[in-house]
Computed example of a mutant assay.
Amino acid sequence: MAGVMDSVNQRTQLVGQNRLELLLFRLDGRQLYGINVFKVKEVLQCPRLTVMPKSSPVVRGVANIRGGTIPILDLSLATGRRSLDDLANSFVIITEYNTKVQGFLVRSVERIVNMNWEEILPPPKGTGREHYLTAVAQLDQQLVEIIDVEKILAEVAPTSEVISEGVIDAETQSKAVSKRVLIVDDSSVARKQVTRCLQTVGVEVTALNDGREALDYLRQLADSGRNPNDEFLMLISDIEMPEMDGYTLTAEVRHDPRMQNLHILLHTSLSGVFNQAMVKKVGADDFLAKFRPDDLASRVVERIRVTDGG
């Protein structure tokens, strides 16, 4: 796995081309799973784990890796399957989500594949509400399941959704009731978190599931003679989404004269040094790592003040 994190410049060139690279892995059977390579810092044989008292059963222990103590989550157990017991022959995928580093215990790591986001589809409608999938893809006549990691992390270590006192003032909150924000995210957990945060600010929220759905929605608004920039205070979009990612959505919006002035905030669990350059390349106005209620609320408050001349 020495090559997992090389060719960063090559990956950066995928921006705006609606492409991604998936690291494929298996848990307790033959089913293939995928995770975006941009989330992966390192892949290694499972190190020695130290059990943490009173931690979630999903957290198999912590490992000392390159001078840091990292929690290791059993991805099989987290998704309702049996735990992975043969640790000596298992692997750990070290990832960074929402600026936090954790490891995911898996049975085996396969390879990296380059795919188009149009080939990444939402989970089948009959999957039910309790599933842990955020998307699926067909690869070499085999189904690849992409796990909703944000849902797992929210269950293992819930994030506070409380906005600190002083972030929103009464005057701004009174102005917020006339504002509407469009949010786009394929994770049901992320959509709920962002919606609750923005509702606390006072704005009305329209929530959609992916970039393709959002672009179609905005185009229909424009076709009907309504200006999306007048309809919405801002667009807050995830980056990783099936069918159309947030970078491509941003680029498409910027290329359409009817909506090109819409304020766009990319709000994503992708971390790292690449993001600022990518955000600038596709023409987004701002970037924020998920999920920090105070930071998100502050961005919305700032937009309200700017649009109202405050």
Rank of each mutant, 00 (worst) to 15 (best):
Q10W: 05
R180C: 13
I264P: 10
S76Q: 02
D286G: 06
T250N: 06
R66M: 02
T200S: 07
D185F: 04
F291A: 09
P57M: 02
E145P: 08
D256M: 06
A222C: 09
I152M: 03
V201L: 02
K281P: 00
V273N: 12
R305F: 04
N18D: 12
T307Y: 12
R196T: 10
S56H: 09
T159I: 10
R82C: 01
A222H: 05
E213C: 01
E243A: 10
V162R: 15
P122R: 03
D294A: 05
R292L: 13
D6T: 15
R191Y: 14
L22A: 11
I72K: 04
Q17N: 15
V282T: 07
N89L: 14
T12N: 10
A2E: 15
T79D: 11
Q138L: 15
T99D: 15
Y247H: 13
V156T: 10
I120E: 02
V181H: 13
E204W: 09
P57H: 08
K100S: 10
R258F: 06
T250Y: 06
M234E: 08
P123T: 07
I183M: 14
F25G: 05
G166F: 08
V4R: 05
R292D: 15
E231T: 09
F232C: 04
L262W: 03
I65G: 02
I120A: 11
K280W: 01
A137Q: 02
R226G: 12
V177Q: 14
A2Q: 15
D185P: 01
R60Q: 06
P47Q: 09
V40Q: 04
I94Y: 00
I264G: 07
F274M: 08
L270Q: 13
T172C: 11
F287G: 02
E165Y: 03
